[in-house]
Amino acid sequence: MATTDAQPRHTPLSLWVNGEYRPLSVQPRRTLLDALRNDCGLTGAKKVCEMGNCGACTVLLDGAAVYSCLVLAVECEQRSVTTIEGGAAGNTVGALQQAFIEHDALQCGYCTPGQIMSLAALFEREPAPTEASITEAVAGNLCRCGAYRHILEAARSLAASGTERRGAGDG
């Protein structure tokens, strides 16, 4: 077995975060969540349970929702990460943020970035998701304030406008 001295403690890593190139240097144990929060200064993804139970750290990795506390940063070489900070007028994350505001879909707000990113992954795939798809998408995101009803309402409103948009496109 080679000794651990053979490898530098830090590994260079090229990551794309919200469309920006982010060259980093990370230890192998560093999670994607810690790399985002501490090395990129993006504190939107929240660090809560650190064991894949709560969903507060949810981000998109190449478009798929993942718990960033269960991903090592070194696994993400040349991969694309989207966080809540990527929200802007005209994109899915931004539309969800607006829907959450309009439907009062948060109380303390701690789970909100994770809820929105889980829904963003869904809406990117299905612009007008069914009720079952919406519920499934956020089943892995806990809200201890109990804002679930409004979170689902926010998602439904966007699904309804997605249906309208799709209808208009078809016409």
Binding site: G52, G55, T58, L61, A64, A65, V66, Y67, L70, V71, S118, A121, E136, A137, A139, G140
Partner: peptide, 9 residues
């Protein structure tokens, strides 16, 4: 099994 986030990985 588990959640979307887990199943994706």
């Amino acid at each position: 099994t588990a959640t979307v986030q887990i199943r994706n990985r």
